[in-house]
C-alpha cells in the first residue's frame, strides 16, 4: 500500500503526459523563426503596395487632381514633422482617443458585467440599447459640438458613444460564458457571492472584455477623427478636413498613413498586454 508520504518524484512515465510546449527556450526559438518569416512577408506586401501607389500616381489615375506620389507625400510628412504641425495634432487626437477609451471603456465594462448578471434588467433595456447603438454617430457630432463646444470634450463624447457599446457587449458576453460547474464547485467549497464574482466571473470575462477593449481603442480613434472632420480646432481629422478642402492630397494621404500607423501601434500594444494578461490560455485561443 502506498502512503501519502512517499517521495515527491513522479515515475518517469507519468511525466510523459504533459501536453503542449513547456520548454520556454524551444518555444521562443520556434517563435522567432516564425516571426522572421512573417516580418519578411509583411515588408514585401508593404513594398508592393507602395509600388502600386507609385504606378497609379505616375499614370495620373484615377483623377489627375488626386494623383500624388509616395515621394510627394513623404516630403509633406517631412516638412510637417519639422514644423511641429504633425506632432501637436497627433497629440491632440491621441489625448481624446485615450480619454474616450478609458472613460467609456470602463463605463461600458461595468454596465456589461451588470447586465450579464441581471438578465431581467437586460431584457428590459435591450431594445433601447440596440436603438442607441444603431444611431449613425456622425449625425450626433453636430449635437455634441453645439452642446460641448468646439473642443476635446466634443470629440471624447462622440468616440465614447462607440466605445461604450463595444465594451458593454464584450463584458456581457464574457460574464455569460461562465461554466455552471465552476460556480457549483466554488459554492460548495465555500465561496460567497463576492468571491464568486472576484474569483470566477471576472477572470472568466477577462478575455472577452479584453477583446472588446482592443476593438474599442480603434473605434475610439475612428470616433475622434470623425468628430474632428466635422469641426475641431486641432487634431489629425481637422488637418485632413483642411487639406482636403484645399486639394493638397499629398498631405491628406500622409495623414491617413500616419493614422494607420497609430492604429497599428495601439493594436500591437494591446496585443502585448493581452498576451501577458491571458498567458493562461492555450496559444490557439489567444
Amino acid at each position: 500500500m502506498r502512503t501519502i508520504d512517499e517521495p515527491s518524484l513522479a515515475p518517469p512515465e507519468e511525466r510523459e503526459d504533459v501536453i503542449g510546449p513547456t520548454g520556454a527556450g524551444r518555444r521562443r526559438s520556434l517563435l522567432s523563426r516564425e516571426t522572421l518569416i512573417v516580418r519578411g512577408a509583411q515588408l514585401m506586401v508593404g513594398l508592393l503596395l507602395l509600388g502600386l501607389w507609385q504606378l497609379a500616381a505616375s499614370a495620373r489615375w484615377p483623377e489627375p487632381v488626386l494623383a500624388r506620389s509616395p515621394g510627394q507625400t513623404a516630403s509633406y510628412l517631412f516638412d510637417a514633422a519639422g514644423s511641429g504641425e504633425l506632432w501637436s495634432n497627433t497629440r491632440a487626437t491621441l489625448k481624446a482617443v485615450l480619454a474616450a477609451w478609458v472613460l467609456a471603456g470602463a463605463a461600458g465594462t461595468v454596465a456589461g458585467v451588470a447586465l450579464g448578471l441581471a438578465p431581467r434588467v437586460e431584457r428590459v433595456l435591450t431594445p433601447y440599447l440596440d436603438a442607441a447603438n444603431a444611431m449613425p454617430r456622425i449625425a450626433l457630432a453636430p449635437l455634441f459640438i453645439v452642446a460641448l463646444g468646439i473642443n476635446t470634450s466634443a470629440k471624447v463624447a462622440l468616440a465614447s458613444t462607440l466605445v461604450f457599446f463595444i465594451a458593454l457587449s464584450g463584458a456581457r458576453a464574457g460574464v455569460r460564458s461562465t461554466d455552471a460547474e465552476w460556480l457549483r464547485l466554488s459554492t460548495v467549497l465555500g465561496a460567497g457571492k463576492r468571491q464568486l464574482f472576484v474569483k470566477v466571473l471576472i477572470p472568466v470575462a477577462t478575455p472577452a472584455i479584453f477583446a472588446a477593449l482592443r476593438l474599442g481603442l480603434i473605434y475610439s480613434l475612428l470616433g475622434v477623427v470623425g468628430s474632428e472632420l466635422i469641426s475641431a480646432r486641432d487634431g489629425l481629422g481637422q488637418l485632413i478636413a483642411y487639406y482636403s478642402s484645399t486639394f493638397r492630397m499629398e498631405a491628406v494621404y500622409g495623414i491617413l498613413l500616419l493614422l494607420g500607423l497609430v492604429a497599428v501601434t495601439l493594436n500591437q500594444l494591446m496585443g502585448l498586454a493581452e498576451r501577458r494578461l491571458l498567458r493562461w490560455q492555450p496559444p490557439a485561443d489567444r
Partner: peptide
C-alpha cells in the same frame, strides 16, 4: 509535483 506551474490546458 513536477506540474505545479502548468496551466490546465497543458495537462
Amino acid at each position: 509535483r513536477h506540474a505545479e506551474r502548468l496551466w490546465p490546458w497543458q495537462l
